[in-house]
Nucleic acid binder design. Structure first.
Length: 284
DNA sequence: AATATATACAACCGCAATAAG
DNA sequence: CCTTATTGCGGTTGTATATAT
């Protein structure tokens, strides 16, 4: 017993849209609107397409005023910053960019922007400013020091009272008991690793560790990655966490962004420890 | 030139949220 | 309320094109 199909797959076109189909959908919607019912629309418009397919085609491609390609530096920065704040909520991110669809932002992030970040081609000044502005101490407390691994323009120091929460945000961060630093790309030149490319993913529970040199991964503590979770299981020195590709859901301007099961979030969060994010699910 | 591999992105799928009855 | 239909979303896949071998 599977799920009931949303349409009759046998009598419906699939795959790329033909120009005639585009024209039919566009002219129908321009003349009659969507009628508030996508499922019924293809029949009325004389299209042999699934309603969902029509909706997607209209929203992502045919709808007026949508842009394609040519992301600006400013858009890059907005996407990176918002991803840092809310993770992969593509629809919410896209809503902050005029003329961009969630699908396009998602594709752009996955295929290009992530790489640009790693190559240091995207400025994250906005994000770093946001970190500096954090006022609510949340999960990590740390002494205020600077991390010499970062260029002077991006060095930041945090007092425990000014530090909010880390976000992984796909650009990496560095933790040790004394310092905490954000920086997108410098870490890569230090020989740190990108865990997202080791095969860890959000579906398979993995236990990983970083060597003291922070340059290799093996299958033991102290860092455990589980489904959308991150636990630093051992207090130690110079643990470096990078790019888990999970997009932790924290807003480091306002502290905890939102949290569905507050009671389950790390009741015993001590200095130098990251908490288990497993239950820190989000709600708008 | 032929084949393999990588990239880009449109489109699909199924789940969850929401609306309608 | 409960049930069912529809919509919206994000992860993933499929395919055309570009690039490498």
């Amino acid at each position: 017993m599977g799920r009931a199909p949303c349409c009759d797959k046998a009598n419906v076109n699939r795959g790329p849209w033909f120009p005639e189909e585009d024209a039919a959908l566009k002219s129908y919607i321009e003349a009659h609107g969507t009628g508030g019912n996508w499922i019924a629309l293809p029949k009325k418009a004389g299209l042999r397409r699934c309603g969902k397919s029509c909706r997607l085609r209209w929203l992502n491609y045919l709808r007026p005023d949508i842009k394609h390609g040519g992301f600006t530096e400013e858009e890059d920065n907005i996407i990176c910053t918002l991803y840092g704040q809310m993770g992969s909520r593509w629809s919410a991110i896209a809503s902050q960019l005029s003329g961009r669809t969630d699908n396009e932002v998602k594709n752009y992030w996955n295929t290009k922007l992530k790489k640009k970040l790693k190559a240091g081609q995207v400025s994250l000044n906005t994000t770093i400013d946001a970190v500096t502005a954090a006022t609510t101490p949340l999960l990590i407390q740390t002494a205020e020091t600077q991390n010499s691994e970062f260029s002077s323009s991006q060095n930041q120091s945090f007092s425990s009272s000014s530090l909010s929460i880390l976000t992984d945000s796909n650009f990496g961060f560095n933790i040790n008991p004394q310092t905490i630093s954000f920086g997108p790309v410098q870490l890569y030149s230090q020989g740190f690793v990108d865990i997202s490319e080791t095969g860890a993913n959000s579906k398979n529970s993995r236990t990983l560790s970083l060597s003291r040199e922070g340059s290799s991964i093996s299958d033991s503590s102290p860092i455990a990655l589980e489904s959308k979770s991150l636990t630093l299981t051992e207090q130690g020195s110079d643990e470096t966490l990078m790019d888990f590709d999970f997009g932790f859901h924290w807003d480091f301007v306002n502290g905890l962004y939102y949290q569905e099961k507050a009671g389950e979030l790390a009741p015993d969060c001590y200095p130098n420890q990251l908490v288990d994010f497993t239950y820190a699910d989000i709600k708008p």
